Amino acid sequence: MTLENSRELASAYLSHLVTERRLSPLTCNSYARDIAVLVRLSQSTSLDQLQIHHIRRFAAQLHGDGFSGRSLARMLSAWRGFYRYLTRDHGFGSNPCTGVRAPKSPKPLPHTLSPDEAAKLLEFSNGDDSMALRDKAMFELCYSSGLRLAELASMKPEDLSLADGTARVTGKGKKTRIVPVGSKALQAVREWLQQREGLIRAGASALFLSRYGKNISRRSIAQRLKDQAVRQGINTNVHPHVLRHSFASHLLQSSGDLRAVQEMLGHASISTTQVYTHLDFQHLSRIYDAAHPRARKKEKS
């Protein structure tokens, strides 16, 4: 089998993805790039002669060239799908990609604000402006209760119990949970609700509205938060999930109760929440390095 044959098979598979599986152009382009890499790496060996040790060598070579574990996992998945097609429609004997796993990539730790940065972010000077009152209520509630962006945008007034200081949150998989709401967030929400009554328009049901009285969009929330961070001189990319990460990190630092943090975040598995223990360890390490007499570097005389 020549290189030209390999390219023809790849082209036939991509046509199959478009016409029969009806995948999106973006997905098909991704498959095309990944399969082109396989064809390039296998130039000295035809596709029907590739064995599992070839695929492992290709993966190791790409990893050495700087491909992350996530990129390699996606690429191997594309190759496996290609070979399933070849064995079914072109008489190939086996799938050499079966059983080949990509190396694991270290998970990046979530970005968080320090408690001082969070307090600075939530300072609003123009408290009489209805949109500023709304923004303050949104961001206070997000940080106070560790909400996801979608949870914040979809929350309704009836989901809040101001008397109890709690909120009913509908999270992933339409699972609901009850989370506490802090006093500052409660006060900000009360002030916003007074403004909301004069803004709401027909069809709007969300707790937080646009200046035109409609349900506010997720994009608008994210952009308003970014703008507030810039105004407050916080030189980092602040988005709603940063507030959620900060909530989890700060709560864990204060309480040490991982299970409670899991429940408030709505994580199905505690392993998802455990990433914040690494952040907590980093925080303790910095304190140790700064304070412990056996950790501080000696000053040069």
Score class of each variant (00 low, 15 high):
His241Arg: 10
Lys174His: 13
His239Gly: 02
Lys226Asp: 10
Arg231Glu: 14
Leu252Arg: 03
Arg211Val: 15
Ala206Ile: 04
Ala229His: 00
Gln195Asn: 05
Ser255Gly: 12
Ile178Trp: 07
Ala206Asn: 04
Val238His: 00
Ser217His: 05
Ala260Val: 15
Leu258Trp: 13
Arg259Ala: 13
Gln232Arg: 10
Ala188Val: 04
Trp192Ala: 00
Ala188Ile: 03
Gln223Val: 15
Asn215Cys: 13
Ala188Asp: 04
Ser255Val: 14
Lys175Met: 10
Val179Ile: 15
Phe208Lys: 00
Trp192Gln: 00
Gly213Ser: 04
Ser210Asn: 05
Asp257Thr: 11
Arg224Ile: 01
Ser205Glu: 12
Gln223Pro: 00
Leu193Ala: 03
Gly233Glu: 05
Ala185Ser: 13
Arg244His: 03
Phe247Gln: 00
Ser183Met: 10
Ser217Phe: 08
Gly213Glu: 04
Lys226Trp: 06
Ser249Arg: 03
Ser255Ile: 08
Ala222Pro: 02
His245Arg: 06
Val230Cys: 03
Arg224Gln: 12
Asp227Arg: 14
Lys214Met: 11
Leu252Asp: 02
Leu252Met: 12
Lys175Phe: 15
Asp257Lys: 06
Phe208His: 00
Val242Pro: 03
Asn235Pro: 02
Ala206Thr: 05
Ala185Cys: 06
Arg231Gly: 04
Ser246Asp: 10
Ser246Trp: 01
Glu191Ile: 06
Gly213Asn: 01
Gly173Glu: 15
Val181Cys: 03
Pro240Glu: 07
Arg224Leu: 06
Leu186Lys: 11
Ser255Asp: 06
Arg259Trp: 12
Pro180Lys: 07
Arg177Pro: 11
Glu191Val: 09
Arg218Met: 11
Leu258Phe: 09
Asn237Met: 12
Lys175Tyr: 14
Gly203Ile: 11
Ser183Gly: 01
Thr176Cys: 10
Ser217Asp: 15
Lys226Ala: 14
Arg244Ala: 00
Ser183Glu: 09
Ala204Trp: 05
Arg211Met: 12
Ala229Pro: 01
Gln228Gly: 02
Val238Tyr: 00
Val230Arg: 14
Pro240Thr: 08
Ala202Trp: 09
Arg201Ile: 08
Asn215Ala: 12
Trp192Pro: 00
Val181Asp: 01
His239Asn: 14
Gly173Asn: 13
Val179Arg: 10
Gly198Phe: 13
Asn237Gln: 10
Ala204Thr: 09
Leu186Gln: 11
Gly233Arg: 05
Ser254Arg: 14
Arg190Leu: 04
Lys184Leu: 14
Ile221Glu: 06
Ser205Pro: 03
Gln253Lys: 07
Pro240Val: 06
Arg190Phe: 06
Asn237Asp: 15
His241Pro: 07
Leu243Pro: 04
Ser249Asn: 06
Gln223Ala: 09
Leu199Phe: 07
Lys184Val: 14
Ile200Glu: 08
Leu251Ala: 09
Ile216Pro: 00
Ser254Asp: 12
His245Glu: 09
Asn237Thr: 07
Arg218Cys: 15
His250Trp: 01
Gln253Ala: 08
Ser246Glu: 06
Arg177Ser: 09
Gly198Asn: 12
Leu209Thr: 03
Gln223Arg: 15
Tyr212Pro: 00
Leu251Arg: 05
Ser220Asn: 07
Arg219Gly: 12
Leu258Pro: 04
Lys226Pro: 02
Ala188Arg: 01
